[in-house]
Design a protein around this nucleic acid. Structure first.
Lengths: 209, 209
DNA sequence: GTGGTAACTTACCCGCAAGTCATATACCTG
DNA sequence: CAGGTATATGACTTGCGGGTAAGTTACCAC
């Protein structure tokens, strides 16, 4: 029946379809946020119909949680891998960024999933968010603590604020990367290395007060 | 008539009402984003009814644009004030933050309005967003250029990426401040000054590669 | 073949929030 | 007081988008 283009084709196996949908949905959620994304658009972009999305993920929140879960694990694992190495201080920061760039080269928007302000507050989703953000935050806190300890800063609130700032730096670099698709991961690593070197060796010239 | 609590009271003059509504709406938009905010809630929180909001601002987008306009002008003016001073380099960054903290002490969420990913893309709103973000971005770019020039970095993309990072730093500090309401503006300035001093004098110990 | 199941669709329901209409009270002015 | 205007509201319409029901096609096992 011509009216139903793809109806009844045996089609793609479940696992693969789920991956496809998650890919598309991650872009959408990462770009427009949870509240700004609609499921019908995701389905259309994935080349399937809306009910199929629901068949696989149950609800919009379920879909979001699944995206988040995949993203959180990917990022968390990579950050942890670097953390378990033996680098410390600024070097650890740069190496972590290097890992992020490598892992996210083909899915740059994914980082944003973790920082969605319009995410639903339902306990089901919140717990998934919390699990991953807490893990990443803990690793960031660890790295920042080390760095600041080297510089003689111990105050807990100082470390807390600096951790937030570090995450913000990652965030903004990812955003910039999204806006500059022609830049490769390697380009980004070079750029960051260059900037860090410039700022932390020469720029002390302008140290305030 | 008891059924209409406030109906028909001559009520508050227009200008003052508009200010009240903008105050409430800015909190809502800044907290939940554009897509996550609903007008009825804003009206209720402002102690008035929904049609009045529409009478004053025409639409949800109009309300959002008005919030943005006020915020953008407030922030832009303050940033520009610091920029027109004679400080450069890191000092200028710290002074700019000082200005932000002072101006936003009682409305910390406002900064987020400028960075709302769920903001509508209609030309009407987009132009207002663009006007303010471009102004602020240009000022940030100017400051970052100066700073990097002192450190010997000239590359346009490096400056661009660093500008984005700087804005991300401001962003994350504002977020942290929102999460720590007991911290005064003065506390924040001290904290930032302390961290900058620590990072840019001692931390070169950990300079990478 | 026939029955079972997995992959998929069209067509619908329905609630919520954006936006509107008709109306009411208060104040001012002549 | 009559009439105009500014401030306000309760009750409504409407559309968008989350979610569902029921059916269709293909493959597989026997």
């Amino acid at each position: 029946m011509a009216a139903r283009p793809n109806a009844g084709t045996k089609g793609v196996p479940r696992a693969e379809r789920e991956r496809q949908i998650l890919d598309v949905a991650s872009v959408a959620f990462g770009t427009h946020g949870f509240a700004g994304t609609n499921v019908a658009d995701v389905a259309r972009a994935a080349g399937i119909s809306k009910p199929l999305v629901y068949a696989y993920f149950g609800s919009k929140e379920g879909l979001y949680a699944a995206c988040l879960d995949r993203a959180g694990e990917l990022l968390g694992d990579e950050i942890e891998r670097v953390a378990r190495g033996d680098v410390v201080g600024l070097e650890r920061g740069v190496r972590t960024l290097e890992g992020m760039f490598a892992v996210l080269e083909d899915q740059r928007h994914v980082w944003r999933l973790l920082h969605d302000r319009s995410a639903p507050t339902s306990p089901e989703v919140a717990s998934v968010v919390a699990a991953h953000t807490e893990r990443i935050h803990a690793l960031a806190h660890e790295g920042v603590s080390e760095l600041l300890a080297l510089a003689g800063v111990q105050d807990a609130l100082d470390v807390s604020a600096m951790t937030a700032t570090w995450l913000g730096i990652v965030d903004s670099l990812m955003d910039w990367w999204v806006a500059h698709p022609e830049q490769s991961a390697a380009d980004m690593v070079e750029r960051v290395t260059r900037l860090v070197a410039a700022l932390f060796t020469d720029a002390a010239a302008g140290t305030p007060r």
